[in-house]
Each structure stands twice: as structure tokens, then as C-alpha cells.
Nucleic acid binder design. Structure first.
Lengths: 346, 346
DNA sequence: GTTAGCACTCTGAATGTAAGAGTGCTAAAA
DNA sequence: TTTTAGCACTCTTACATTCAGAGTGCTAAC
């Protein structure tokens, strides 16, 4: 078991390394408040290194925290810092505008978070799959084009403009609308998604002799609505906080950020309210030197959303923890208000 | 006046510098085909330097072309290369899909161009201001939200979802639709834009007692449709072709690329079919080491569009010239086809 | 268990060296 | 008059050398 002084030393190494980004030596620790001589501190550091909590960058360097060290820190030592009142203010102010869509709120969350931290922020709204399809419209715009509008019960709207396929008559279109209204409107999106692969093709075969073109139309119309849109803000900040060996490395990371699929699966597997994954724990070579903090929030009755923060392994977990905690509530509140305003007509 | 050999030397310096990205010396030029000894070539290089066409990077280095040298080259020496058949193929293939909107085509152009060149490509569709507003719709989605759809005669569609302002009744909304249909539909966008600042506020004052909130609604509805959307592709390529001193420099350039306003005004002032501006000629410190080639095309009767290419000053102007020339026709053709398909109902 | 002292290691910046590429100039050849 | 060979000179680049500084581990004494 670690002694109190050893815990202090580990804590302090992490704190100082976060601030200075340079290996921490025994003398520095002495000056920063450890009540012992540098030799004693060195002995303790030896122990901590033996246990794998800290490591050297070269044989005679100071120590930096290892992943295991950070893990121990976030699990046992971390005390969230109070959020600076200036930060609080900025958050309030950024949310103090009128929103016209859920995704506006979700996007704003990512944007404030990355501004506040200078890291990269992600924001994923309450889950889509639980929603119901409440409306489907086809608006003819001119000879060739129609606009499709899909509305879900939580106020999400997706629209798309189509050129009408050559082999599709306007009667066919009307049939499509009818089929969608009969079979799909009112269903949860997940059901819609399933029927689209099973039942609907059968129905189409009965009504059309070119079901594939109709099916294709169907598919693109619905595809959008199923996507959990994830918002990323502060991609460029990677340049500041990641010590890149290589421009191609940056490019890879950058394009990873553009891959909604990848990001979503990176962020989703979080446990509890706020989860932290450090360096290798992210199981992605590109993110070796980064950590990901994920916070989830519940919008009462409307599903679970997620915000996340990607930064260097030596980020200030304490401050970030505090911030994310504020966001958890703030975003949930904002969304909650928005949903309420949708439900109660004024 | 320059001798033939001097012209050959200038030409060859530019060619070799484009290929190797390193200063070119007299011996290299000799080996690459100049029929004279290195000493003679050095003398000619002295003349060219005296005239400001080439310059040294340090007192005993080989020469690189100056802006004036490039200028002379593009004005008098440049011979467009034939486009490689493989490139031709790729262009054909990328355009060989169905497009559902003008902007799809315009965006695709930028994307292919940047893929093909590994530079940064811009694409600006036929001018918006000439279009007429042909349709305006308000689709109620639920208690709180309406979707507005604006259609122009060239098949452009913009939609937006709104929460209805608190102090706006549905009768008010209907009035808004009526006013727009009476006063604005059928007008060219530029007229719409002007009326929105002059005539419309007066009309509103007659019908509403809170004209400002209505006006605000009006404004955001229309704002979108006026914007010339410009597409940028290959922003990340800057990392490869610009020798950045600094990450913050990259950030600045990158955010310049996000500034549609700035990019548009950078690209617009081009003369003739294909215009080239080199380094300082761009009058932007950030773009000192880059050149911009701008090509404009005419879609018969539907306005003028522009594609542009930003690359290093030592890009292969000959190849790019050929490529842009192909694009000029290809994009115009594609758009022309699209417009035709809109006009003639099948 | 703690500490002073010391030999040792490694980094990073500064300095020196040598090869290579290229130049300008001069004087001779064409 | 133009071209060329030759040479001294310049500058870059890569590589080695040196040296101070920061930090360590170990030992022996407190």
C-alpha cells in the first residue's frame, strides 16, 4: 500500500506535469510542498515507479505519470474543481438565445465546451432510435423536384430535395406517400428501420413493377433521419495540445474526427455519469497521447445524450470534470425546456 | 530583350523547380538540355536575375523563379499540358451520377479537382442574384414549428425550420405568406433583396403592430437564399504544399478557407477565362507562397460560375491550366444538362 | 526512516569541421 | 564578341564534440 507521502507525491507530479508539461524532478516536488528532502522523495519516486504509476522519459530524467498513474489518480485522488464563475457566465450566455432545433442546442454545447477548454468537444443529442415518426410530407416543387420532410415526435425535422426518378410517375409517388403513412408513420424509428428491410420491399413488389427504383428512393429519404448526428467542435485545437510527430498523423486524427461512425463508437461505451479513458485505454493508436472524458445526461423521458472532451493525457482532469458536470445539467435543462415548449402549445 | 537561350533557361528553371522544389543550378540546367557550358548558363542566369525573373535563396545557391518570373512565364511561355487520359476518365466517372441539386454538381467539381491535384479547390455556382424567386411555402409541422421553403427558377431550394415567435399568431403567418406571394414571388432575387429593406417594412407596419418580430422572421427566411454558397475541398492539402513556418499560420489559412466572404472576394476578381495570380499578387500575407488559378464558365443563359485552385507558387501551371480548362467545359455541360432536365418535363 | 553527498547519465544548446553544391570572376579560346 | 575552363569563394547541411544543467541511484552517516 502507498504511504500518504507517496500519494501526495503522485498527486503533485500529476498536478505539476499538467501545468508545465515537463517531467517533474525530486527537487521541484520538495519546493512545491512535499515535507521531506529530495533524497527521500527520490526513494518514494522509486517505489511509485516500481509500481508502474510513474515513469522516466530517459534514464536520468524527472518522472511523468503513466497511464496506470492517471488511472489511479482519476479513480481515487481526483477532486473536481469548482467551475470558475467566469466560465459559468460564459456558458449561461452562450445558451441564452433562442433555439430552433434540438440540434442547435446540441451543437452549441460542443462549441462552448471546446471554446472553454481549447480541446476538442463532441456532442451527441438524445438518442434518435426512441423517437417516433410522426409526419411525412412530399412537397412538389416543380416538374422535376419534390421535397421530402420527415418529422419525429421530438421535433426533429429532416428534409431533402429529390429529382423524381425518370421511371416514377406522380401516381407512383402518391402511392409511396400512402404506404409510408399507412405503414410507417406513428412507429418508432427503430421499427421503421426494420420494416424498411423486411415488410416494405414485399409491399412494394405488389404495387410497382420497378420496386428497386422506388426502394432506392425510400431508402435515401429515410437514411438521414436515422443518423445520430454528432457534433464536433475544436478539431483544430488538436494542433495545440497533441505533440505531433508528423503532419500525416494530424491528418489521420483529423479525418477520424470527421468519421461520425468512428467517433460515435468511441464515445458511446461510457459507464456512469462521467467516464474517463486515458491514452491506451482508448485502444486507438492515433489517440495514444490523448484522453477522452465522456459525460452523459438524461433529458427526463426523452432519452440520453452525451458530451465528450478529447484532450492531451496531461489535461486538467479536475477542471474538466467540474466543467462537464456543469454541462451535464445545463444541456439537459436546455433540452428539457425545448421539449416542453414543443409539447405545450402557447 | 531576352535571348532564346535565356528564355529556355527561365522556362527550364521553372519546370525543374516545380518538379524538385529545390533551387536550380547551372550544372543541372546543362544536363537538362541547355546547349552551353555551365559558365555560359551562369552568365545568362546573372542577366535573368538582374532583370528580376529569378532569385537566389542565399549568396551561393541555385536560382528559383521570382513572382515576376512566374508572371512572365504564365503570360508568355506557358503551354497547357494535355490532360492525362486517366484524369479525364476520373472526371467523367465522378460526374457520372445522378444529381439532385445544382449545388451537388458545384460541390462535386471542387471535390474532384482537389482530389486530382492534391491542392485546394473552390467552386462557386452560377450567380444567384440573377435568379427569380418562384415559390414560397410555409409548412406547419406541429404546434410550434413551421418549415419555410424557398424555390428559385433555377431549381435551387432552401429550407429552414422555425419555431414560431411567441407574439405571432397563425393569422399573422398567413398574412406573411400572402405578402411574400404578392410582393416578392416572381421577382429576381436582387429585387427581393432590395424590397426587403425598403418597401416591405412599410407594408408590414400597416398589417402588424409588432413589425420588428415579423421582420426578423422575414429576414432569416430570405437570408439563406441570397448567399452564394462556395464550396471548398482539400483544405487539409495545405499541409502538404505550403511550407509552413508555424502551426498558427496554418490555422489562420485554414480559417480563411472557412470564411466564405473572404474566399469569394478572393476568387471573384478574375479576368478572362482562366486567370492566374501568383504569390504577392494575391495581396494577402497568408498566401505569399501560393498561387490561385481561377477559371470561369458560362452556363448558357443561366449565369457565370467559377472554379478555382489554390496551390504553391511552384505548382505545375501547365498541367493545372489544362485541367481547369477541361473543368470549365465539363461543369458547364453538367449544369446545362441539369437545367435542361428541369425545364423540360419528361 | 531520513538525509547529505557524490558519481553517474542524459539532454540540449553551442561550437567546430568537412563535404558538396553553387556562384562570380578572370583570362584564354573560339 | 561570345563562350568556356578554372579557380577562389560562399553558404548549407550533416555530423561530431564539448559542456553546463538537471536529475538519478547509491552509500554511508544521522
Amino acid at each position: 500500500m502507498l504511504t500518504d507521502r507517496q500519494l501526495d507525491i503522485l498527486y503533485l507530479i500529476i498536478k505539476i506535469y499538467t501545468e508545465t508539461d515537463a517531467p517533474v524532478g525530486s527537487k521541484t516536488l520538495m519546493n512545491e510542498g512535499i515535507q521531506a528532502s529530495s533524497a527521500t522523495i527520490r526513494n518514494d519516486m522509486g517505489v511509485l515507479e516500481e509500481l508502474g504509476f510513474i515513469e522516466k522519459t530517459h534514464s536520468s530524467s524527472g518522472r511523468i505519470p503513466s497511464v496506470k498513474g492517471y488511472r489511479f489518480y482519476v479513480d481515487h485522488l481526483l477532486k473536481p474543481t469548482d467551475v470558475a464563475s467566469q466560465d459559468r457566465l460564459e456558458i449561461r450566455r452562450a445558451f441564452a438565445r433562442e433555439f430552433h432545433a434540438i440540434n442547435d442546442i446540441v451543437e452549441t454545447a460542443a462549441s462552448i465546451l471546446s471554446d472553454l477548454t481549447s480541446y476538442t468537444a463532441f456532442s451527441l443529442g438524445p438518442e434518435v432510435k426512441e423517437r417516433k415518426l410522426t409526419g411525412f410530407r412530399l412537397i412538389p416543387l416543380n416538374h422535376q423536384q419534390v421535397m421530402t420532410i420527415i418529422v419525429t415526435d421530438k421535433g426533429n425535422v429532416e428534409s431533402q430535395v429529390f429529382s423524381i426518378p425518370q421511371d416514377m410517375s406522380s401516381e407512383d409517388l402518391e402511392k409511396v406517400v400512402k404506404i409510408i403513412n399507412d405503414k410507417l408513420v406513428g412507429q418508432p424509428l427503430i421499427t421503421v428501420y426494420n420494416k424498411l428491410r423486411t415488410e416494405i420491399p414485399l409491399v412494394l413488389q405488389r404495387y410497382f413493377h420497378t420496386p428497386s427504383s422506388v426502394m432506392h428512393f425510400f431508402d435515401s429519404v429515410m437514411a438521414q433521419a436515422f443518423e445520430d448526428r454528432i457534433f464536433v467542435s475544436g478539431k483544430m485545437n488538436i494542433l495545440d495540445y497533441d505533440s505531433l510527430t508528423d503532419m500525416s498523423e494530424f491528418k489521420s486524427i483529423y479525418s477520424l474526427m470527421d468519421d461520425e461512425e468512428a467517433i460515435t463508437s468511441l464515445i458511446i461505451p461510457s459507464h456512469g455519469d462521467i467516464s474517463i479513458r486515458i491514452g491506451e485505454e482508448l485502444e486507438n493508436d492515433l489517440l495514444e497521447n490523448m484522453s477522452l472524458m465522456t459525460a452523459s445526461y438524461e433529458v427526463n423521458g426523452h432519452g440520453k445524450g452525451t458530451i465528450a472532451l478529447l484532450g492531451p493525457t496531461n489535461m486538467s482532469y479536475a477542471r474538466m470534470f467540474g466543467l462537464l458536470d456543469v454541462f451535464r445539467y445545463e444541456v439537459a435543462d436546455q433540452l428539457s425546456d425545448y421539449y416542453r415548449s414543443l409539447e405545450s402549445p402557447h
